[in-house]
Design a protein around this nucleic acid. Sequence first.
DNA 1: TTCGAAAATGTAAGCGCTTACATTTTTATT
DNA 2: AATAAAAATGTAAGCGCTTACATTTTCGAA
Lengths: 347, 347
Amino acid sequence: MEDVSISTTGEVPTLADVAAAAGVSTATVSRCLNTPDRVTKKTLKIVMDAVDQLGYSPNYSARALAAGRTNTIGAIIPTMENAIFARGIQAFQEELQQNGCTLLVASSSYREDLEEEQIKTLTVRGADALLLIGYQRNPQIYNYLAKRNIPTVLTWASNPDKQHLSVGFNNRLAMRALAELVLKNGHTVIGCISADTAANDRARDRVSGIRDAMKAAGLDPSDLIVQETQYSIEKGDMAFRSLMSRTVRPTAVMCGNDVLAVGALRAATALNMNIPGDISITGFDDIELASVAPVPLTTVHVPHRRMGQYAARALMTAINGERPESVELPTTICRRNTLGPAPQAGA
Amino acid sequence: MEDVSISTTGEVPTLADVAAAAGVSTATVSRCLNTPDRVTKKTLKIVMDAVDQLGYSPNYSARALAAGRTNTIGAIIPTMENAIFARGIQAFQEELQQNGCTLLVASSSYREDLEEEQIKTLTVRGADALLLIGYQRNPQIYNYLAKRNIPTVLTWASNPDKQHLSVGFNNRLAMRALAELVLKNGHTVIGCISADTAANDRARDRVSGIRDAMKAAGLDPSDLIVQETQYSIEKGDMAFRSLMSRTVRPTAVMCGNDVLAVGALRAATALNMNIPGDISITGFDDIELASVAPVPLTTVHVPHRRMGQYAARALMTAINGERPESVELPTTICRRNTLGPAPQAGA
DNA sequence: TTCGAAAATGTAAGCGCTTACATTTTTATT
DNA sequence: AATAAAAATGTAAGCGCTTACATTTTCGAA
């Protein structure tokens, strides 16, 4: 005698199974799951019990297909290899999660072409919205996103033309403020270690910030000695050495971020230079790394966590059909120990 | 006079649109996209031209629903906030991408309950396979995964009982080798700064490794002074100070990872201790951070990138129905400058 | 030239869910 | 108690794709 009871053992239960078990229609089950207030308390309980009992969980592909939404947000960051973006993205993810969304992260290796590819991949995979870093990119991309109706938030910068939604900070002003402090310390020959300014708007803005300060102080902005390289401790080290091998040595080296600055610091120590006695060095970002290293780093503090959180909120707002506001977060200067008065000439 | 030509302008084209444009059935278009060798060269061209012409790209939700696969792999890591996992995960992602898969990353904040939740979230969202860190977790989770037929690879450790697929390294042996080197330098009072050993199998194995070495050297393993804390530079700093405030001070402090070691190093410098003259300090992981800090860190090098890559390959193999082999990658000791001979007693 | 097997293509049935619309039940009003 | 409006529930049509199976075409051997 075979038992012919409807047993779905071993099979993943579906909405229909729940409906059958609860003695209601699939529509009602769906409502219990998505809009519980459109359903009687009683049926809600019956259905939820069935859900628990069967261990049901919805199939997101089917839901996405039927509803036209995936509840997935994409983020494309230049790199996951160092901590520059980690804290902000972590906060972004936490906030999304609170809103029932999942984060999909991809990285572009700081390459515009790869970023475009990733944007397409993520949208095609159904990302409901996107977080991008910086504002500089092919305008077609913005069209593509607009046409597909994908809310997008630009971060780690604030968009100068205010065209797009952004949650970031003003790299130029932030670096300018730091540069003013450097100048106030009497430095007149300034070096700068930066990421590629052609491809990286944050890097470019930061360099511009230094020039702004120089100009305002009556110096010739074109005297700024810029050394471009990639973001890594090793590269920062090398760039610093290259700067120091010039006939006219800068007395202050302003770095595009903390990773570079730590590299510079390491090189300076290796060269037996006293910091900040012989040379002043500054960073940008204030990642944890900044507080380590031979000498605690003077840098610009960026409210990464808050930025991630606000970016997530902006996106949730946009997904709900409202128009979120861009926000520009304030940065502050962390005075620590790598910036000091310029050494006396010829000393 | 209205133009009544079939124009899908403004609409995202579907498979059916492509089929209509190419004058073939949807099945043929699907074949062109997924199994191009089951189709004539001629039709392939016609169809692909139509695809380009319409700017078609497949709807992944629909594809996933129909095919039962999402081509998405999930990874759950304890944290994204520091670089411990970054390099390995980056390599993992790159390898997946080469195989047409997307990576979904979630973090568990080192909490077992959150990890379980994330595992369920990711599988429910259709992850075809999973990467997890370490092997210690509720056995039910493994059942859940097995029942749902989700290939899973355990990383950053190698599973002692060989039950599960793993691509990692032997934390215990690696740390033991380093500890032997420390002992060979004459240290007899050894301190250890570790992550929570109850919840973190890697941390526990590393501590055990030290004890193994002590035992083998004829020391009492229970004499090891263990200070548990969280992974951060700040916490490492504090733990080191606490270790130094004991009446019997260790002459060597072995840290559970480089982040802690850098913190310890910072504290030691702040306490005006000479490294390695007064105190030896070791790390684990060999992340870029290790090469910064007052003194280049003696640590265990872990082949993170290779691990990520192999883990991805193992998962792809498993998805294709074959049975991949676990692999245990070798680690090496990076002798740098923070380990030296034990100071003379009373010196 | 004819015929059968192999290759190419087409047909159509879902995959599991949401949701517009139709139907039934409840509630409020008189 | 009768009735209309509101609330709850049910019915069923897709969402865009894959794939088993049916049909047509191609091609080589006899």
